[in-house]
Structures are given as structure tokens and as C-alpha cells.
């Protein structure tokens, strides 16, 4: 196990200044306010594997996605892409073309005035990968076929396609620069369930065929289970549990992970009485002391209220929880 991971983050953090304008702040006699969207996240993704980050809205998972492709700069910590510093890598087009991103909304992420051919060819042209119009058209046709569309679809506009087909176009565009690493931010959340299955199958097939590495962001645990090798569960800007997918789903340890799984309505119709977790996700501007989950946690005690737990490994699982560590869970 000496191979360099595709992506590695150490103590990654991103804060946003959400203060009111200075004059208003002065009048109201209040200080600056900082939203700690991501606060100390470390993980690494070995080549050819999929790491998923799951969590509810506001947990910071999409901010992590934007940090690792350089759309946001980090407030603290660092990101290493294939062993080198992300900022250095981003300055080099040859390195930059190795990473791509797929967004949630296939309606907003494709330019409605461009033909599909031009949308998919843009990264090819930007990185100067294929010279000559004919060769570019050929490459686009190959990409369209690869994602299950027809080469003839290149002359159409995005509005002529359904949501699932548009997401295929987004994937073809992402693949056009021959990337090794893809960041997928909720790629199927805007799609209907039967179409979602098509896209998930396509992503898995492309991964095994092209040896891609994925960072997969989702709020849907069932989807995450289908695609991941490892899963990190986020709550209020931090990873509270990280484990191989099978381990996480068969023996979740952190009380928040267990609550999330408990909350999902299932098709088993066993008539079980679910015990929904109470309360709501607190504000990341003013997070609770100690463990951020303690106000909703059935196992919380004084230590949880005072001291913030760090991620600690137990067998295959890393958990940030005093109760699990002390064997109270």
C-alpha cells in the first residue's frame, strides 16, 4: 500500500464571513459572524475507488466538493491531488484536465444556447487535446456513444433532451478531457428514480472501464450504498463516521449515522415503529459546544456537551463519538 492516493485532504476547512455590513454591525454592537461550513475534514481516496460523503443539507458536503476541485480556496488545511499540492496542480493545464466535476442540476449546468457538440467539445478545445474539427467531432461522437446517446444527438440543443439524457451529456462533457478523478455533487438528485438507476449504472460501468476515481456527494444513503467503497458521514462541517461501505451499512456506530438510517422510510413494510431523531440540524454559525450532535443525541452526557470528540479508529470504522469510545453506545 505505497501507491499515492488520487486525492488526500488534511484538516480541510472553509469559513464564510456572514457578518452584516460594517455600519449596521457597529450600530447593533455585534461582532463578525463566521459560518464554519467545513471545519477540519481529512480523508484520502485511493485510485480507482469511490468515496462518498453523505449528510443532510448544511453539513458541508457540497463545500468539500468545491474545495477539492479548487472552486473554493481553503481557509485551513490542504488538498493533495495525486501527491502534489492542489494549487500547484491547478496552475498546470495538464494536471487540471485530470479532474472534472458533475453537478446536480442538468438544467442549469448546460448552456442552453450551445449545441451538445460544442458543450462536449469545450474541454477538448480548452485543453487543446484534439486538433482539427473533424477529429474533434469524431471524439465527441465517441463520447456520446460511451454515455448511451447517439452521435447524431450532437447537433441538438439541451432543451431537446430529458433530465436523464442531459445528465448523460454532463457526464460526456466531464469525460472529454480524459480525467482520472471525477467529483459528482448529487448527480442523480434531480432525476426520477427509474432514470437515476440508469445514470448510476452508467457511472459504475464507466468507472470499471476507465478506472476512474470518484468523490461522490449525496444525501441519499441508498444511492451511496450502491456506488461507494468508503463512506464518510458528515454533520455540521465535520466527518462523524468513516468506514468501508459494507461496514458502515451493516454496523453503523455513530448515533447520528444510526439515526439517519432509522429515519429512511423503506419498502419492507414490516410495520416497525420508527423512532425519528428529534430536533433539527443546528446553525453552523453558532454550533453547539462539545459534540455538535449532542442536543439531538440519546447518548449525550456531560463530556459530550463540553469536549469535542475526534475521529478515532475502531477496527475498520473511524468514529468521532465519546459514547462509542467509552463503550456506552
Amino acid at each position: 500500500m505505497t501507491e499515492t492516493p488520487m486525492l488526500e485532504t488534511r484538516d480541510l476547512a472553509r469559513f464564510f464571513d456572514v457578518s452584516r455590513p460594517p455600519l449596521q454591525r457597529l450600530l447593533a454592537r455585534e461582532g463578525k459572524r463566521t459560518l464554519r461550513a467545513v471545519d477540519g475534514v481529512s480523508f484520502s481516496i485511493p485510485k480507482g475507488t469511490t468515496l462518498s460523503l453523505v449528510g443532510e443539507s448544511g453539513c458541508g458536503k457540497s463545500t468539500v466538493a468545491r474545495l477539492v476541485v479548487g472552486l473554493y480556496s481553503a481557509s485551513r488545511g490542504d488538498v493533495r491531488f495525486d501527491g502534489q499540492d492542489l494549487h500547484a496542480a491547478r496552475r498546470d493545464p495538464a494536471q487540471r484536465s485530470r479532474m472534472q466535476m458533475i453537478f446536480q442540476d442538468p438544467y442549469a449546468s448546460l448552456n442552453p444556447r450551445w449545441r451538445v457538440l460544442d458543450i462536449i467539445a469545450e474541454p477538448i478545445r480548452a485543453f487543446g487535446l484534439v486538433k482539427g474539427d473533424a477529429a474533434q467531432r469524431e471524439r465527441v461522437a465517441e463520447l456520446l456513444t460511451q454515455v448511451g446517446l447517439s452521435p447524431l444527438d450532437g447537433v441538438k440543443f439541451p432543451h431537446e433532451f430529458s433530465g436523464g439524457q442531459r445528465q448523460r451529456i454532463s457526464i460526456a462533457r466531464a469525460l472529454s478531457s480524459n480525467p482520472e478523478f471525477l467529483v459528482c455533487d448529487e448527480p442523480t438528485s434531480a432525476l426520477d428514480v427509474s432514470v437515476q438507476a440508469q445514470i448510476l449504472n452508467l457511472m459504475k460501468e464507466l468507472q470499471s472501464r476507465l478506472g476512474l476515481t470518484f468523490l461522490f456527494i449525496s444525501h441519499n444513503l441508498a444511492v451511496v450504498r450502491q456506488v461507494s467503497d468508503r463512506v464518510g458521514v458528515m454533520y455540521l462541517g465535520r466527518i462523524v463516521e468513516m468506514a468501508p461501505a459494507e461496514t458502515l451499512f451493516t454496523s453503523p456506530r455513530h448515533p447520528y449515522t444510526r439515526a439517519l438510517m432509522e429515519a429512511i422510510p423503506d419498502l419492507e413494510m414490516s410495520g416497525r415503529q420508527r423512532m425519528p431523531v428529534g430536533g433539527e440540524v443546528p446553525s453552523p454559525i453558532d454550533p453547539p459546544s462539545g459534540c455538535a450532535f449532542h442536543p439531538r443525541c440519546p447518548l449525550a452526557n456531560d463530556r459530550c456537551r463540553a469536549e469535542r470528540p475526534e475521529l478515532k479508529a475502531h477496527a475498520l470504522t473511524e468514529t468521532a463519538c465519546h459514547a462509542v469510545e467509552e463503550g456506552r453506545g
Binding site: S162, D192, V195, Q196, A197, Q198, K204, A222, E246, I264
Partner: peptide
């Protein structure tokens, strides 16, 4: 069949071809 199950991993989800 196309709903991803939470309790197990399947290699290939049963998708419906095409769209409405």
C-alpha cells in the same frame, strides 16, 4: 425494481430504459 435498496448492494440496478 429501480429503487436502490438500502439493505444490500446490487451490481446493476434494474433501470427502465428511456424516459416518460
Amino acid at each position: 425494481a429501480s429503487i436502490p435498496p438500502l439493505d444490500r448492494r446490487v451490481d446493476k440496478l434494474a433501470a427502465i430504459d428511456g424516459s416518460m
